[in-house]
Amino acid sequence: MATQLTSRTLVKGSRSTRSTIALKITMAVSGLVFIGYLLLHMYGNLKVFAGHDAFNEYAHHLRTLGEPMLPENGLLWVLRVVLLVSLVAHVYAAVVLSHRAHKARPTKYAVKKNIHSSLSSRTMRWGGLALLLFLIWHLLHFTVGKVNPAGGETNDPFNLVYESFELWWMSLLYILAMLALGMHLRHGTWSAAQTLGLTNTARSRARAKAAGWVVAVVIAGGFILVPLSILLGIVSK
């Protein structure tokens, strides 16, 4: 009887471990998908420095990518589906892993770990939730609803961006969200490298930490340049 119970416990533990590893890999892969998308999106946003016509031409080009093999907006919808699937997978894995960690971790251990953990790692959960809420607003603002807080037109991409970020509170909201994104990316990049087995040596761990900082600064910094430059008058209509 004891042997049977031990065997069942080991099998259950093995399945749980495999499930946890699968969820961590899901988080890592979906996170890398988002990093790739954010780099492309950030690069496109920087077209604002080329002026009104160049930015609007870029926005129009996005809608016609893949033609004539795909209809207008066809490739965009493919990308949206991939991102949506990645988002659902990422959030699901994060929630399940967080729940498991909370159940398995003693309170004293959690407090001790928090003392030695970085700010980025401690804010991953709430920072992720804040970013999810910001993403919903961002889509309503620029993509789905196209809301112009300044009251101007919404069918001109450059003017929508420019007039939105002329408002100091809109720029501040966006900049704060990008700082939160940078913190999330810094720790997320490290975690993804660790999950994928890329931090087995001291040198590889140092490279992973450096990569986290580079990804965070490049992406968050690139996004922040747009509202900051509009707010300071560096970019004009």
Rank of each mutant, 00 (worst) to 15 (best):
A2F: 06
V11H: 08
R18D: 15
R18I: 12
S19A: 11
T20C: 01
I21Y: 08
L23T: 11
L23D: 14
T26K: 14
T26R: 12
M27L: 10
A28L: 02
L40I: 10
H52V: 00
D53G: 05
F55G: 07
N56E: 04
H61W: 15
E72C: 07
G74W: 15
V78T: 13
L79H: 05
L79F: 04
V81A: 13
V82I: 07
V82M: 03
L97S: 09
S98W: 13
A101C: 02
K103F: 01
P106A: 01
A110E: 12
V111S: 15
I115T: 11
H116K: 13
S118L: 10
S118D: 08
T123E: 05
L132F: 15
L135I: 08
L135W: 10
I136C: 03
H138T: 08
H141P: 00
T143L: 04
G145C: 07
A150I: 00
N159H: 13
W168S: 13
I175S: 12
L176E: 08
A177I: 10
G182M: 00
R186N: 14
H187E: 06
T189M: 01
A193E: 01
L196K: 05
G197R: 10
T199L: 00
R205A: 14
R205H: 13
R207L: 11
R207F: 06
I219C: 03
I219K: 09
G221W: 11
G222N: 07
I224D: 01
V226K: 09
P227N: 15
L228E: 02
I230Q: 02
G233R: 06
I234D: 03
